[in-house]
Simulated assay, not measured.
Amino acid sequence: MKRSLRGAWLALGLGLLGAWACATGSAPADAPGAEEKAMASAARASVDVFSGREAPTWALSDDESRALREAVEALPEGTRPLPDVGLGYRGFTVTWADGARATVHGAVVEFVSGGRTQLREDAPRAVEERLLLGSRAHLDPELFKAVASQVQAAQP
């Protein structure tokens, strides 16, 4: 009797585990790249503007995340490093779920992916502008105004 009860609990546990796996919608093992695309699409953005306080951070939608990643990866290689600006606005940072990270200040984008750091040139400052506009819905209006004025003041 004990043996059959133990088997029933084991079967129930395995059944629940299988149901959970189906409910989570995990990608089948024979779909290469699907998980990598999902990991690359999820991202969080932040603006580095405070000293001694945590940076305001917000989630990007999958579409925003994917478009931003494509924009960063399409930028030409650059040679200028991120500026050392001290206090105030120090740029935006986007971190994707796959560990890639882009730090953006002015026309310079530092992109780290797969353990490799690349400097990218964004002369029209399109990535910074996109992040600034996207931050409006996530920042206090006064903070957004301050960040926007510092972004504009940093333009050549």
Rank of each mutant, 00 (worst) to 15 (best):
L82G: 04
R90H: 10
A42D: 15
E54P: 06
A71E: 01
W96A: 04
T103N: 09
P81L: 08
T93D: 00
D62N: 14
M39G: 10
A148S: 12
P28Q: 05
L60V: 14
P76G: 05
F144L: 05
H138P: 08
A34S: 10
V151A: 07
E121K: 06
V112H: 05
P83T: 07
A146K: 08
A31N: 07
V72C: 08
S26H: 14
L132E: 04
A107V: 00
A97Q: 12
H138I: 14
V47A: 01
G115S: 01
W96F: 15
V85C: 02
G13K: 04
P83N: 03
G33S: 00
A59K: 15
V85N: 04
G106Y: 07
L82I: 01
P124F: 01
A100H: 10
L75R: 00
A59H: 11
E128L: 00
G13Y: 06
S41C: 15
V151T: 11
L17M: 06
T103F: 09
L119Y: 08
K145S: 15
P28C: 03
D30S: 06
V104I: 12
S61L: 11
V85L: 14
D98L: 13
L119N: 01
S135F: 14
Q118I: 03
P141F: 02
D30P: 00
D140M: 12
K37V: 09
G18F: 09
L14C: 07
A97L: 09
A27T: 07
L133N: 15
A55C: 08
A29M: 07
G115R: 05
R69D: 06
A107T: 13
G15A: 13
L143T: 06
L16W: 09
G25W: 04
A40P: 01
L139D: 13
S41Q: 15
H138R: 13
L131N: 07
T103R: 15
V127K: 07
C22Y: 12
Y89G: 02
V127P: 03
V49W: 14
T95W: 08
S65V: 05
G115T: 02
E110Q: 11
L82W: 05
G33D: 05
C22N: 03
G78Q: 08
E128Y: 09
D30N: 14
A100S: 13
F92L: 07
S51C: 07
